[in-house]
Amino acid sequence: TGIVNVSSSLNVRSSASTSSKVIGSLSGNTKVTIVGEEGAFYKIEYKGSHGYVAAEYI
C-alpha cells in the first residue's frame, strides 16, 4: 500500500512507460494497493484492473 504524493493529480497509465496511454488519474493523498514494480513504475490495483504510476510519486 502506498499514498499518492502529489499536489494536483497523478496519471495512471496502461503500461510502465511515460509514452503509454493515460487511463485515468489519482488525486494527492489517495491510498493505492501496489501489486508489482517495473522499473520506475509501480503496478497498482485500479478500477477492478491494473494500472501503472510513477514510483517517485508514491
Rank of each mutant, 00 (worst) to 15 (best):
T1Q: 12
T1K: 09
T1W: 15
T1G: 07
G2I: 08
G2C: 12
G2K: 06
G2D: 04
G2L: 07
I3D: 04
I3A: 05
I3F: 14
I3M: 08
V4W: 04
N5Y: 08
N5G: 06
N5T: 11
V6P: 07
V6N: 08
V6K: 12
V6Y: 08
S7G: 11
S7Y: 09
S7E: 10
S7F: 09
S7R: 12
S7T: 12
S8T: 14
S8K: 12
S8H: 15
S8D: 11
S8P: 11
S9N: 10
S9T: 12
S9F: 14
L10S: 03
L10F: 04
L10E: 02
L10H: 03
L10M: 06
L10Y: 03
L10G: 03
L10C: 15
N11L: 15
N11P: 15
N11V: 15
N11R: 13
N11T: 13
N11I: 15
N11Q: 14
N11A: 15
V12T: 02
V12C: 04
V12S: 01
V12M: 02
V12E: 00
R13C: 09
R13S: 06
R13V: 08
R13L: 15
R13T: 10
R13Y: 15
S14V: 12
S14N: 09
S14Q: 14
S14C: 13
S14I: 13
S15M: 10
S15I: 06
S15E: 13
A16Q: 03
A16C: 06
A16L: 04
A16M: 04
S17E: 07
S17N: 11
S17I: 06
S17H: 09
S17T: 09
S17K: 07
S17V: 05
S17R: 07
S17L: 07
T18H: 15
T18L: 14
T18F: 15
S19V: 09
S19N: 13
S19E: 12
S19I: 09
S19R: 11
S19W: 09
S19Q: 11
S20T: 06
S20Q: 02
S20F: 08
K21M: 12
K21E: 12
V22T: 06
V22Y: 05
V22R: 05
V22A: 05
V22N: 04
V22C: 08
I23W: 03
I23T: 03
G24I: 04
S25H: 13
S25W: 14
S25N: 09
S25C: 15
S25P: 03
S25K: 14
L26M: 05
L26C: 04
L26T: 02
L26D: 00
L26Q: 02
S27C: 15
S27D: 11
S27P: 15
S27M: 13
S27T: 12
G28I: 10
G28V: 11
G28P: 15
G28A: 14
G28Y: 14
G28C: 13
G28Q: 11
N29W: 15
N29C: 15
N29T: 07
N29R: 11
N29M: 11
N29F: 14
T30A: 11
T30Y: 07
T30V: 09
T30I: 08
T30G: 05
T30D: 10
T30Q: 11
K31D: 05
K31S: 09
K31C: 14
K31A: 10
V32I: 08
V32F: 04
T33V: 13
T33W: 12
T33R: 11
T33E: 06
T33Q: 09
T33K: 12
T33I: 14
T33F: 10
T33L: 10
I34A: 00
I34M: 03
I34K: 01
I34H: 00
I34G: 00
V35Y: 07
V35D: 02
G36K: 06
G36I: 04
G36R: 05
G36P: 01
G36Q: 06
G36D: 07
G36T: 05
G36F: 04
G36L: 05
G36Y: 05
E37H: 14
E37K: 15
E37D: 06
E37A: 13
E37P: 05
E38R: 06
E38H: 08
E38K: 06
E38M: 08
G39C: 07
G39K: 06
G39T: 03
G39E: 05
A40F: 08
A40S: 10
A40T: 09
A40G: 14
A40P: 10
A40H: 09
A40E: 12
F41P: 00
F41I: 02
F41M: 04
Y42F: 09
Y42S: 02
Y42P: 00
K43L: 09
K43H: 04
K43N: 02
K43D: 01
I44K: 00
I44P: 00
I44M: 02
I44G: 00
I44C: 05
I44N: 01
E45W: 11
E45Y: 09
E45M: 12
E45L: 14
E45P: 04
Y46M: 02
Y46Q: 00
K47S: 08
K47H: 09
K47G: 11
K47M: 13
K47T: 04
K47I: 06
K47F: 10
K47R: 10
G48N: 08
G48D: 08
G48Y: 05
G48Q: 07
G48A: 06
S49K: 11
S49Y: 09
S49W: 08
S49M: 12
H50N: 05
H50W: 15
H50G: 04
H50A: 07
H50C: 09
G51I: 03
G51D: 01
G51L: 03
G51Y: 04
Y52C: 00
Y52F: 10
Y52L: 01
Y52W: 12
Y52M: 01
Y52H: 01
Y52S: 00
Y52P: 00
Y52R: 00
V53Y: 02
V53N: 01
V53A: 04
V53L: 03
V53M: 02
V53T: 01
A54T: 07
A54N: 09
A54S: 10
A54P: 14
A55R: 15
E56C: 13
E56V: 12
E56D: 08
E56A: 13
E56Q: 13
Y57T: 04
Y57V: 04
Y57P: 02
Y57Q: 06
I58R: 01
I58T: 02
I58H: 02
